[in-house]
Design a protein around this nucleic acid. Structure first.
Lengths: 184, 184
DNA sequence: ATGCAAACGTTGCACAGTCCAAATGTTTGT
DNA sequence: ACAAACATTTGGACTGTGCAACGTTTGCAT
């Protein structure tokens, strides 16, 4: 993997040499695979009811109730027309609702139906349950060590460590998707 | 860095209760988001040359050189016909090659071209570089702690900790995909 | 008040990814 | 020699996706 010799020569005497970094990186990458696998498993349960992009829309809609189309599309990072048609299908499936905003008639108000909400909750709950099951196999000391290590890692990565976390532990962000993906 | 001074009022002597598990789960989920973001960033560089599924195929093809179509489709978890057409496009883009296997003429031999290989290498190298950059911001003790914690977590998750790891630490599995996904 | 520009949702069009089925060509086992 | 098994390929249908165009509704400045 010495494809490009980034002039890394000048290595500080710190005992965290490249080997060290490399090992940690490898550990991170490996753990990532597990996480993705967990995600994929929890998602598998619903993939015959909705497609993955649809589920993603549902999740975003769950945490952004009464959003208008452009907002939603923006959150998803897709074109409004894409969100539009996905919504059409979700609505047809009874998982979402659309309604013209009476206060501003050029907008629409989108909502997830109770059934759609349940679908999302099931998946996110399943994912948390799976991770919790893994965590429970760890000894108490290992758990706190994991928290500390992960928190340090997250902080180093610049992401706000456990920001709001949607109160009672909701989807918030990340994976959930990563359907077949796995590899790559 | 005991950054989890959560107002978790009294750290109950219980050590290992549900609160504990919940906190670890939250930390894991948060770290996951960071990982996904890193992945997405490193992927962004090529998303105007190939689509994500195409890139995924390229990665799998890189690590399974001279594979035949069905094998490839199997690894990707898609229908052979899907792999077929993606390959058509990749070949048209000069990133892959197809050739009838002279030893068994009902099969074809698929290969990634040097250019395709370079594309993949760039992305995977970028991802490792990004993670390494984060890891480098950690103190040596934190690094080893992270390795230990992650290894324990991975083991508890049932995945073989750093199995073969494609020799010199290559893509192997996971994310790489997770394009826009992020949320969900 | 009038009118024009911006914001929205919506629809048309093109194309990638996907699956299922079916057609075609190749090997293999009997 | 033939049928069964296997591999690639093509046809058809549908979702996801972006871009561009259109009609409606607002907001604002003249």
């Amino acid at each position: 993997m010495a494809a490009h010799e980034q002039p890394r020569e000048d290595r500080p005497p710190d005992r965290g040499g490249d080997d060290d970094v490399d090992e940690v990186t490898r550990a991170v990458l490996t753990a990532s695979r597990l996480l993705v696998a967990v995600s994929a498993r929890s998602l598998a349960a619903v993939e015959d009811r909705v497609t993955l992009p649809q589920f993603r829309l549902l999740v975003v809609l769950s945490t952004n109730s009464n959003a208008k189309l452009v907002t939603l599309a923006d959150r998803l990072g897709v074109n409004p027309s894409t969100a539009m048609r996905m919504l059409d299908r979700l609505i047809a499936a009874g998982l979402a609702e659309r309604e013209v905003n009476p206060a501003n008639r050029r907008e629409t108000v989108l909502r997830v139906t109770p059934e759609g909400r349940r679908l999302v909750d099931d998946v996110t709950a399943g994912r948390r349950r799976e991770i919790a099951a893994i965590v429970e196999r760890l000894a108490p000391e290992q758990r706190t060590a994991l928290i500390d290590a992960l928190t340090a890692f997250t902080v180093a990565g610049g992401e706000p460590p456990v920001p709001g976390d949607g109160s009672d532990g909701y989807p918030l962000g990340w994976t959930s998707d990563l359907p077949a993906h796995h590899d790559v």
